[in-house]
Amino acid sequence: MCFSQEISSGINLTGKERVWEKQNFLSSEIIEDIKILIDNDYESVRLPVAFNHYLENEKCFLSELRKIIDYTESNGITLVLAYFGHDLDDKNAKKKTKEISKNWLKVLSAIGSGTNHVYLEIVNEPNISPQVWESIAPKIISKVRKVDFDIPIILGATNYNSLFELSRTRPFVYNKLIYTFHYYEPYIFTHQGTEWTGAQNSTIGIPYPYQENEMPKLSKKARGTEGEINLRDYQYTGNKIAINDKISQIAEWAKINQVELWCTEFGVTDNAEEESRIAYLKEVKEVLNTYNIKGFVWEWDGNFGVRGLLF
Rank of each mutant, 00 (worst) to 15 (best):
N12H: 06
N12I: 05
L13Y: 10
L13G: 02
L13N: 11
T14S: 15
G15K: 01
G15N: 02
G15V: 00
K16W: 15
K16Q: 14
K16V: 02
E17T: 06
E17H: 01
E17G: 02
R18S: 10
R18Q: 14
V19C: 13
W20E: 15
W20K: 12
W20A: 06
W20M: 05
E21P: 00
E21K: 08
E21D: 10
K22F: 11
K22R: 13
K22A: 10
Q23A: 13
F25M: 07
L26E: 07
S27Q: 11
S27F: 09
S27N: 12
E29T: 11
E29Q: 13
E29F: 08
I30T: 05
I31Q: 07
I31C: 04
E32M: 04
E32T: 10
D33Q: 13
D33M: 09
I34F: 05
I34A: 01
I36R: 09
I36M: 10
L37M: 05
L37R: 03
L37F: 05
I38F: 06
I38C: 07
D39E: 15
D39L: 07
D39H: 09
D41F: 05
D41H: 04
Y42F: 15
Y42K: 06
E43I: 06
E43F: 01
E43M: 08
E43D: 15
E43G: 04
S44Q: 10
S44K: 14
S44W: 02
